[in-house]
Amino acid sequence: MRVDPSGHLAELAARGLLPEDHLAVYLAGSLVRGWGNSGSDLDVYVVSAAPRTAPSTALAPVALTPDHVPVEVVHVDGVRWDIEYWTDSQVDQMFAKVSWEEFDTNHSVADLLTSHEMDFLERLGSAVAVTGETWLAGRRTRLESSAIRSILVSRALNLSDLFVEDAVGQLKAGDVESAVLSAKLAFGYAVNALHVSCGEFGHSAKWRARRFRQVEQTIMPFEEYWAIETMRGYDPANPSAWVEDVVLACRRISMEVVI
């Protein structure tokens, strides 16, 4: 199920949801990627020069100035639209956080980004412009030359390592059930790192198989990934063996994914 971007601008304008100073309006998320279904939301991003001051349905917190993003929710022809209002300055501030200089000097650079900011940057690459194609293209180019890929790969591998350490410690302590869950989490983050390294951003676990199908890589075949994801090799009589296999798979990904 794909979305057709024509008509969205008029819909926003008719509902009084289109700021006069908008620089770009674009669509993102699963519907735009062709991964959506009849229950999917449409993510609409509106970028303007000045902050939106009209009363909003919600305010999403961000670590930027202004420190929030107004969010409107409307339903159009049975589809829920989540509309976020960003300023151009907020976008600039996010790019400053993911510069190479920041990556080289700040080991916790990923922590500078809130989940909303992360979503914004992750979705930029696959967004479809309703208006402001030049703005969107310029920001995409800037994203490509930023350190975002290395930042997100490092973050995902660090998280994978933490859960590997947990899994190994839990195995040693005889807490096999916890070790199985930790290994599963470690694997998820390792696969996320693999995807990001191939330019496929996004960290939602529900789309991991979709992302895996999307990337071209030689580190791990889809079948092997899916066998681990679905715990096909898990033997209740010997769970430790599965944990060790998964940890080794995580290590292989860590070794091959280039930061």
Partner: peptide
């Protein structure tokens, strides 16, 4: 035999 919890990074081809 490597430890199971060894951390590995590949930075520009250097492990």
């Amino acid at each position: 035999v490597p430890r199971l919890d060894v951390r590995v990074r590949n930075v520009g081809g250097t492990l």
